[in-house]
Design a protein around this nucleic acid. Sequence first.
DNA 1: TGTATTTATTTCATAAATGTAATATCAACA
DNA 2: TGTTGATATTACATTTATGAAATAAATACA
Lengths: 164, 164
Amino acid sequence: MNSFQPTEQRLAVTLRHYPAFPREPAILVRLVKHIYKRVHDDANAVLKPWGISHPEYNILMMMYGTEGYTLNPSQLADAAGEKSANITRLSNQLCDKGLIERTASDEDRRKVTLTLSKAGLAMIGEFLPAICALLERQTATLKVAEMAQMEKLLKKFLDQLEQS
Amino acid sequence: MNSFQPTEQRLAVTLRHYPAFPREPAILVRLVKHIYKRVHDDANAVLKPWGISHPEYNILMMMYGTEGYTLNPSQLADAAGEKSANITRLSNQLCDKGLIERTASDEDRRKVTLTLSKAGLAMIGEFLPAICALLERQTATLKVAEMAQMEKLLKKFLDQLEQS
DNA sequence: TGTATTTATTTCATAAATGTAATATCAACA
DNA sequence: TGTTGATATTACATTTATGAAATAAATACA
C-alpha cells in the first residue's frame, strides 16, 4: 500500500542471502531516505509560486531564526547543514533575487555578513502560512506524544552518527 | 555539542517571530535532513575503496534483495526511491563497471531487464562486511526497542506524507 | 484492423551538490 | 616588523539529480 513496501520486501530477501545483515539499522536508514526525499519534494512544490527552492528556503529560515537576521557564511553552513561551497552558490542566488544582502565585515575582513533584506522578510511572511499548512498536513496523523518521542529518538540517532 | 544545536536554536527564535510556526513538525523534518546527509556521507566514505557511490550501492542492494537478482528499471525506481532518469544513469554506470547486465525483455519489448552480474555479486560479498560494520556503529547506542519504536513512528510518518 | 491511450524507458538540457584548490585576511610570535 | 600557520570565503571543475520531451512498444476498443 505504501511506497516503502518494495524496499522492505527486498530487505527480507537480503537477510535470507546474508543473515548477518543488520535489519533494524538498515530499515531506519532507508526510511529516513524515503522521508527526506518526500519532504524535499513537497517543500519544493509548495515554494514554487515564490520561485525559490527548498535549500534556498532553508537558508532564508536560518536567517529569519537569527537575532538581527544576520550571520556569516560559516554560521549559515552549520545552521543549514550545507557545505560551504553550497552556501556561496545559494547566497549568490538569494542576493540576485534581492532577498538577502551581502556586506564585508569591518572587524574581520575575511568575513562576510549576510542579512535578510526587507524583500526577503516580506517574502517569508508570504510563504510561511503555506509552509505551516504543509507541515501540519504532513504530520496530521501523528500525536503530539509520538512526535516528541520521535524527536528524542532521532536526536539520539544523530548524536550517535556524529560520534561514530 | 552536536551539530543540531544551531538549527534548533534558530527554530526557537523563529517561534518568537512567528508563534504559529509548528515546532515539532519542523524539528522532525530538520532532524531527518541532518541524519540523511550524515548517513549518505558515511556510506560514500565506506564504499569509496570499491569505487561506487551510495546511490549505486542502493541499486546493487535492491537487486541483491530480489529473487533471481533481476528486475526492470521501473521496479528498481520504486525499490530504490530514485527517479527514472536517475535509474537510467545509475544503471548505465553499473553496466560500464560490469556489475550488472542489461537485456531486452522478450514478453514485453518496452521493458528492459537488469540482472546482477557475477562480478556484481562478488563485489557485494566484498563490501557487505564493511557496510554491516558501519550500520552497527551508526546505531551502537540505540537499544533494540528504541529502533523498533523509531521504525514504527517513521513508517507512520511516511504513510502520512504519502497521503497528504 | 486502425486509431487512441497508456506504459516503459531513455535522451537531453538544466539545476544542484560536492571536492579541491585558490585567495585573502587574521593571529601568533620570533 | 616579518614570517608562519590558521581561518573564512570563494572559484572552478566535476559529479549527481531532476524535469520535460521524445521514442517505442503494448493495450483497449470502436
